[in-house]
Design a protein around this nucleic acid. Sequence first.
DNA 1: TTAATATATCAATTAGAATTGATATATAAA
DNA 2: TTTATATATCAATTCTAATTGATATATTAA
Lengths: 107, 107
Amino acid sequence: MINKKCPSKQLSKRITELGDLFRVLGEEKRLKIICLLRNRELCVSDIWQNVGWPQNLVSTHLRILSRSKLISNRREGQKIYYSINYLAFKKYNSILADFLKKYEQKD
Amino acid sequence: MINKKCPSKQLSKRITELGDLFRVLGEEKRLKIICLLRNRELCVSDIWQNVGWPQNLVSTHLRILSRSKLISNRREGQKIYYSINYLAFKKYNSILADFLKKYEQKD
DNA sequence: TTAATATATCAATTAGAATTGATATATAAA
DNA sequence: TTTATATATCAATTCTAATTGATATATTAA
């Protein structure tokens, strides 16, 4: 039988965080946007004109990515430039690595 | 302007794979099941009696996890024991690390 | 063979997230 | 101020995935 206290408060908080992150990344349009933003800034029109999705859809996905801090933006005149938030990626990467590594091999 | 050839065949295949994986992991019940299975085998009834979700729901999530090879199972009499597929985790972990590291810092 | 236990499957429903269409806001140019 | 361009927001719809309820299958015990 399993220990009833198994899912500690701490663990379930971490599960929630991980779930949120995975859901954001579990959308291929968002993954593609992330790929496009690698090592460069792009404004919304750069993106939607390249990928061919409607402007407001791109804008919505950018908002979702921003909400989890994966990307950030700055305005320059009419245009708003989006870019990878490398610091957030670094943080997420270590959280994920930490989680997944536990399942890499039996100790 | 963005290079039109940017999303290479290879890249979009990788995006699909990553999307599939993230969607599987983007469900907190499945994450919890994964946590429960860390370092031990459990049968379906161990799991659903512990978490309190209906039997068939647990069974369904186990099927989804199995489909992406994150877990495997073996029958022992009436019971079917599920466990982490550590090899698959190792593989996924390196794919993810590879993907995410690209966004860790500008080069 | 019948009954009991463990698990899986399937159709129907529900919930949530993606998409669309229309419109609003912000900035810049005329 | 008016017009044009860039982006965001919002309600409605569509899609997809989770959940439920009922039932099927497999194994074991009686």
